[in-house]
Amino acid sequence: MKKTTLALVAAAVLVSGSALAHQAGDVIVRGGPILVVPDASTKNHAGNTLQYDFNVNSNAQLGLTGTYMITDNIGVELLAATPFSHELSLPVYGKTAKVKHLPPSLYLQYYFLDKDAKARPYLGAGINYTTFFSEKEILAGVTDLKLKDSWGAIVNAGVDIGLTDNLYLNTSVWYAKIKTKATFKLGGEEQRADVTLDPMVYFIGLGYKF
């Protein structure tokens, strides 16, 4: 995914000849595949039967962003996506559960270079809210699984590359702080664990300026 993103960016830079003209008042909508790669770790509470870290798989969905340019160089962006689906597994036990989540995020961005540059890199930072739902137990003996919603920081970097006056290629990455508290029963015994996900998120797609 990362190698593909870099290759497409390099190719677009070489062939692109259109200025972006991001400026105050513009609304920019982007869409394309988005990949969440969790870096999971687990802190078990005293008395837990389980003493292993949960493993959480990666998942790709359709990513959508909407940006409003406050000035020629400052924008505010909302990140959204179709629901991500992850499998939680434990060493020795194997697949334990499935869960879905949505990670809407709001952040400010600073766009470098002049508004008429052919490519405009940017950096952003803000707040992420992650809501978990549709928890489904797989491992026999596991019941009543619930994951609490999470608030945390998010940082963003990306680049827009002009294809036409209003259409361009975008590639972006995010790093989000996501920490949830998992509660469940194993063989009828209450279990609690703090699960940190802290994913890297990768996006490549097309953008359109209104």
Rank of each mutant, 00 (worst) to 15 (best):
K98N: 15
P104H: 14
D114W: 13
E189I: 03
Y129S: 08
I127N: 05
W174N: 08
F203Y: 12
D116C: 09
V201I: 08
K146P: 00
V173L: 04
S85T: 13
H86M: 13
S134P: 04
Y168N: 14
V155N: 03
G126T: 11
Y111D: 00
K136G: 12
D149C: 04
G158T: 06
P121T: 10
K118A: 00
D149K: 01
Y122S: 03
L186A: 13
G152H: 01
V159G: 09
D160G: 08
D149I: 01
R192V: 04
P103S: 13
A119L: 09
L169K: 14
K177A: 14
K115D: 10
K100G: 06
K146G: 00
V159L: 09
A153V: 14
L113P: 01
A153W: 13
L113C: 04
T131Y: 12
A117W: 03
T164A: 14
Y111S: 09
L108T: 15
G162Y: 14
G124L: 02
L197Q: 03
T171E: 04
A119C: 11
E135Y: 03
D149H: 11
W174Y: 14
Q191Y: 05
G188C: 07
K148D: 03
K179Q: 13
D198M: 10
L145A: 06
L123W: 02
H101S: 14
Y122D: 01
K136T: 15
F203P: 00
D116K: 14
N156T: 13
D194P: 00
R120S: 02
D165V: 10
V155Q: 03
I161R: 09
T180R: 06
S134V: 11
P83H: 12
L102R: 14
I178G: 01
S134F: 11
K115C: 09
P121N: 06
L163E: 07
S89M: 10
L108V: 15
P104Q: 12
W151V: 10
P103M: 13
K146E: 00
G158V: 00
T143H: 07
L147A: 10
E87H: 15
R192D: 06
F112V: 07
L197I: 09
F132G: 03
A176S: 14
Y107N: 06
V142Q: 02
I127S: 07
V195Q: 04
T130K: 07
P91L: 10
L139N: 08
I154L: 12
D149Q: 05
L163A: 14
L139R: 12
F132D: 04
A176T: 07
K181D: 07
T82L: 15
D144F: 04
K115F: 06
V99T: 15
Y111Q: 12
M200F: 15
P121A: 08
V195P: 06
F112E: 06
E87M: 08
T82K: 13
A176E: 00
D149N: 13
K118I: 10
W174E: 01
L106F: 15
T143C: 07
W151H: 03
T143F: 05
G141I: 11
R192S: 05
N170K: 11
I204R: 09
H101E: 10
D165N: 15
K98C: 11
L102E: 05
K98Q: 15
D198I: 09
S89H: 09
